[in-house]
């Protein structure tokens, strides 16, 4: 889970940075989106790189979710009889909600692909016009809400997940703990703020 999580996290950083191009207007953004299809040319054919990336990400996602399910399954079996009294709330909210957050994110990924990749559920859904599709999306309050909720879940997921990956991969130790916690906080906030800036900008009319 740790390694697949880290790969997806790297993707998210790039994805978030790319999204910020929306603030430079439709021409910039749309040509950036078009460029994504041409990465690797002329060695690769058009969209080949994109497909490679999609396959890798999908594999990561499947592996990540599979491990999560397996781990959850194992953990439930490790305590067949639960405590009668409630456990005091010691760990952070992020830690305690990893599984719920993960489920929200899984559903969101499906929605997100149908919305802005395939365009099937997008109010506009016109291929080759991502800028306009995005603006159309966030003009609808409940679609914007889906994105906001998902991004908050992502924030919590990264906050615990990044530090947790450092533990699992054995990179953490007593001295580095503060460093990893800080990086986790900065990453979670930066990615979330970066992603959320787009729907907020659309809703506030900054991007139209």
């Amino acid at each position: 889970m740790a390694s697949t999580g880290v790969i997806m996290l790297l993707f998210l950083i790039v994805h978030m940075a790319g999204n910020l191009k929306i603030f430079f207007g439709p021409t910039d953004f749309n040509s950036y989106a078009a460029w994504l299809r041409t990465i690797g040319e002329p060695v690769l054919h058009e969209t080949w790189y994109l497909w490679v990336q999609r396959v890798v990400l999908l594999a990561c996602l499947v592996a990540h979710v599979t491990s999560a399910i397996q781990l959850t399954h194992r953990d439930i079996h490790a305590r067949p009889q639960r405590y009668r009294s409630k456990r005091p709330w010691r760990a952070t909210f992020a830690t305690n909600t990893m599984r719920y957050g993960g489920a929200i994110l899984a559903l969101f990924v499906i929605w997100h692909i149908l919305d802005l990749t395939v365009g099937a559920v997008n109010p506009r859904g016109e291929a080759g016009h991502p800028y306009e599709n995005v603006v159309a999306d966030f003009g609808v309050w409940w679609i914007a809400l889906i994105y906001v909720v998902a991004m908050l879940a992502l924030c919590l997921h990264i906050y615990h997940g990044f530090w947790s990956a450092a533990q699992t991969l054995g990179a953490n130790n007593a001295a580095r703990n503060v460093v990893f916690k800080t990086i986790a906080t900065v990453l979670a906030l930066a990615i979330t703020v970066g992603f959320l800036s787009v729907p907020i900008a659309v809703m506030t009319g900054l991007v139209r």
Partner: peptide, 14 residues
């Protein structure tokens, strides 16, 4: 032995 997996909740150390 059937112990569960670690999700780094930190409850053990606490």
């Amino acid at each position: 032995e059937g112990f569960g997996g670690c999700t780094n909740t930190g409850e053990c150390a606490a």
